[in-house]
Design a protein around this nucleic acid. Sequence first.
DNA 1: TATGAATGAGGCTTCATTCAT
DNA 2: GATGAATGAAGCCTCATTCAT
Lengths: 196, 196, 196, 196
Amino acid sequence: MSRTKGEESKRKLLQVAEELFAKKGYQSTKISEIVANAGLTQAAFYLYFKSKEDIFQQMLEDFDQQLIYLSDVGKKAVELSPKDVKSYVTNMFIQLFTVLGKNPNLTKIALQHATDSDRIRKKIVEQIANNMSNNQRFGIVKEEIDTWIAAESIVAVTERLVNRYLLTREKTEEELGEQVAQMFLSGILNHLKSGD
Amino acid sequence: MSRTKGEESKRKLLQVAEELFAKKGYQSTKISEIVANAGLTQAAFYLYFKSKEDIFQQMLEDFDQQLIYLSDVGKKAVELSPKDVKSYVTNMFIQLFTVLGKNPNLTKIALQHATDSDRIRKKIVEQIANNMSNNQRFGIVKEEIDTWIAAESIVAVTERLVNRYLLTREKTEEELGEQVAQMFLSGILNHLKSGD
Amino acid sequence: MSRTKGEESKRKLLQVAEELFAKKGYQSTKISEIVANAGLTQAAFYLYFKSKEDIFQQMLEDFDQQLIYLSDVGKKAVELSPKDVKSYVTNMFIQLFTVLGKNPNLTKIALQHATDSDRIRKKIVEQIANNMSNNQRFGIVKEEIDTWIAAESIVAVTERLVNRYLLTREKTEEELGEQVAQMFLSGILNHLKSGD
Amino acid sequence: MSRTKGEESKRKLLQVAEELFAKKGYQSTKISEIVANAGLTQAAFYLYFKSKEDIFQQMLEDFDQQLIYLSDVGKKAVELSPKDVKSYVTNMFIQLFTVLGKNPNLTKIALQHATDSDRIRKKIVEQIANNMSNNQRFGIVKEEIDTWIAAESIVAVTERLVNRYLLTREKTEEELGEQVAQMFLSGILNHLKSGD
DNA sequence: TATGAATGAGGCTTCATTCAT
DNA sequence: GATGAATGAAGCCTCATTCAT
């Protein structure tokens, strides 16, 4: 291992904090718990972080990094045959689950924190809404759809299912991606002829 | 007004607490703030509630009451013509928004609280999932749908849209109900022939 | 006693804090000591003061009040016969000792505190320097005297002697006033004819 | 340079500490600041000093050294003509300012420190008071003067003016020496015939 | 029905100091 | 001769809770 001892300690603190924040929320997580779980003393915490809020923000920065990969998700679906569109979109959902599911803790934390959740959620929602509006212009997405509502919905669903099924490993990204794609694409009900 | 002074004080505390819990979260809301906004002293708080957790639980009971009305939501869609099914389900979503939107604060609080959110969410999800499974048996809901995932999704979307659009009064229950019904029923994409 | 219990507690805390600040300095005085000496718990401290700095500032306000009385000290010595001038000035010094000596603790504290000492000292020095400049214009104070240096000196001496002899009750205001008047007025040495 | 690296480091630490102690006071100066300004680590500090108090004491020893030169200041003024006495004493004050002004930082620190200021101040005051008593026996210093009060006053004035005017380089030792000599020797007021 | 006054427990943070390398 | 990493002790402050009136 080429990491120094100090880097290792900081890494450990970040990791433990992430778990605890996700499990109990920011406020309810005490620094004393974090350091106890990391096998350090409270003073050591302040070697690496200026404050409790600081470790939180450092975690968010990591998360923000990961969100960059979202920008490509579902970019354009034009020029694809209907069949391809579906598999394309399904794939897009799988990607979404994969990106957020890669760090379910951070997803949960980031979207819960009073001060930051709005900013972060907006960032994700915006990307999806914009992609969707694009595809709406090409006639792929229905005109009647309010893309912001749809984007909010997609994010809400993803967030929830990540917490509910990925964190617990009850389902895989693929399973969830397919189910969600199905719901949002073809709907839930049978035999509904277009136009009703 | 036939309410005694004591009842009035308790009511006021509950109301103020609800607003603050919704705005700032349970942990970040101080009893000192609640009583200050209610025009009382801290000691008075303890005339009506055993603890901070207690006032929270009393609020949840109120919420649980309201959730009873959910039990009928979307009970059975059999015997309806496809067209009716759609309007029926749309209506069902509007009801869902109405019930949860009637007390957006409580919705937010209840589904956020670390200890209780699971229980409450489960209660709601369960009802919806069961109704859905029923309708699945009658061939109304697609076989491929995992009704629990779908129910979780519906609740997540509703919860989010209530917070995002009802709390701010940017949209009405009807608008949201229709959009959501549309998304979940007919999907988002155009021209998808059944079977792909 | 018409004071409420709360007022009494606050008064006690102020009094104890004053003694400790004077004895050990601001930084070295711990809130735990203040409350221990006042027979209260640490939490009680915060019923009356927002912070350690706050109790300090409230003490300074009291002191500032007392300094108002200084403004008259040594205002004008014109129109007095030389003999009267001397007794007038002696009296002025006695007043100075009396005002500062009335609250020797506050004098010490105020003139020690890093952030405030300059401001407060300046306030006192300014008054004295101005009075002196006035009397210089009337030919009472020697032309060669730099009134700011003289004022600083007078304050320094007073401050020191208050700490050294009044706090310990080794000397009275009158004794000190006379000695100081003598030193500054006629000097220390014998037989120095004017002009040497 | 014949100094070893270790000696150099120690010297640097002493110098930085002196500046910081003078600027911010003993308590408010953190070891972390000292070493940061000296370009060393905290652990290095303890190679040269047993504790924070230790570096302080070592600084005081240096100061004590310098105070030896004070012993001659104003030793005897006998056998001098009145005119000579004045210039002699003036000179004496200049020396006092020079000795203390040579290390204004140390002067400030030493006379501020809770535990040591009494001891050090006493040492200086004592020398001056003794010299003065001597000169009083020879009829040079007025009988009415309480030499201890006078000595305390002289030290207080010197201390203050060093801080106020020498540290800031607003005045020179000579200017201050003359002004102070004037004040204490001939007084501040004009035309006061001896005996009033 | 309410308040004024107080408290215990615990949280976050700082800082002088140590020790293995 | 110096550093990186860590710690123990203590300080300030907050907050839910209690109790006498």
